[in-house]
Design a protein around this nucleic acid. Structure first.
Lengths: 234, 234
DNA sequence: CGCGTGGTTGACACAGATCAACCAGAGTGG
DNA sequence: CCACTCTGGTTGATCTGTGTCAACCACGCG
């Protein structure tokens, strides 16, 4: 095991367990598309850990923005094998589809508050405001860009390279003061990277032994040598 | 080797080797977005086998529609490992980006003719015609949809399942009279499926022995038992 | 005819999966 | 406060699907 200094383990967000209920959390956040246009304010909603936000094939009547917490979107095979396509962190928009239905399942990784905007409202806004239409397209294009990078990772990278890429991505997206506090468990990381939990765990241990990583609790990581990680990343 | 009856090997399209030159081929094709709007007719252009159409990082000044032949779009790792994200067949549009530059390399798999439309023209059209703007978004969304399915394949499917999925996809997209004539070599199939050529070859041989496939030349395949393939596909 | 390219097949190696044991921390209840 | 249990994570031993390496074959072309 790789516990070291074990700092105070910053327990996450209060409960909100079980069912959905209106949110009471305020929070920061970088300006989102929704902020820029009055009338797209949306309604806040909360989900408990592991609660499903929408399912594959369901009508895509809403678009979501993560306010706090984290969300995974994934696809399942009949026998339970799972591929997570993306993690959505505070500030990210997810659930936007060009068609009528969702093509992935979304669930909250931790207790999560999202802001949701009715799809019809968005469509109407896009109809009259070209900038909004453009922004919608850009969001889909960003998702595509990420998916293309991820195909390369899944098809052609080694376990070590996948984990290195993952760590750099997470560091970029959620590090504060050089420290990252992962919201997802090892299984989610594995299902994101096309690996098993054991392999993820082993690679992380190895990186710690090499001094590339420092742990304080399994989910609190410090990248001590980003350069090395970047080299592995190719 | 698995040659069987060897029908006349339908050699592809005349040369046009070496450099690009104006096209002289006409051709069929299902109605494309470009057809629907005069002024988006575009210019035909031809590329020889293995010729690069655009490179990763280059300015995305044009959008392309395949008229005949076939195109692959891929990403490369520094050491040469390659992941093909998609094959583009007659009627398909590729090279559409929301940003300013291409994020993949595109090359002709066989001798290929494309129709190209200036990106600025398209933007201008989208500016004034909401239906076009919508169509552009839809195209990106379709690509995303494919990429998401492909992530599942690359991250979680076995070699057999990958090949089965591939065969069904190709059958859907280019079979005529229950026969498919693949434009791409084994290496391209491998790089699309995240496998080696040897594994692709072995799986295909295995499927032939099982009677699921019939070959007449390595690239001409008949799916004798689509049901079985669909079961493998999950 | 000889050569180059693309494809197949076999023998073997290995990265990562699987199976299993174990550990730490967080609840829970007495 | 302690025993108990549950969950998430780590580690070791072993297995296996796919990669690697190498030989070979078939075809097309100069």
């Amino acid at each position: 095991m790789y516990a070291e200094t074990r700092v105070a383990p910053v327990t996450e967000i209060p409960p909100a367990i079980g069912a959905t209920h209106p949110a009471n959390e305020d929070h920061f956040s970088r300006p989102s598309i929704f902020d820029a246009y009055p009338g797209l304010l949306g309604t806040a909603f909360s989900y408990g850990k592991d609660e499903e936000i929408y399912g594959d094939g369901e009508p895509a009547d809403y678009v979501y923005e993560v306010m706090n917490g984290a969300v995974r979107t994934c696809k399942l095979l009949e026998d339970g094998r799972r591929q997570i396509g993306a993690f959505h962190l505070p500030g990210d928009v997810f659930g936007l589809e060009a068609g009528k239905t969702h093509r992935m399942t979304a669930d909250a990784i931790a207790d999560t508050t999202v802001r949701l905007v009715r799809r019809r409202t968005l469509d109407a806004a896009a109809q009259s405001n070209l900038q909004i239409a453009n922004e919608l397209w850009s969001m889909t294009a960003r998702d595509l860009c990420h998916a293309e990078d991820h195909m390369l990772l899944l098809g052609r990278k080694t376990a070590m390279e996948r984990v290195a890429t993952f760590l750099l991505e997470m560091d970029r997206r959620l590090a504060v003061a050089g420290m990252l506090d992962l919201p997802m468990c090892r299984r989610d990381i594995g299902d994101y990277l096309g690996l098993t939990i054991e392999t993820v765990s082993r690679v992380l241990s190895h990186l710690q032994q090499e001094g590339v990583l420092g742990f304080s609790g399994a989910r609190q990581i410090k990248l001590r040598n980003q350069q090395r990680l970047r080299e592995m990343n190719l």
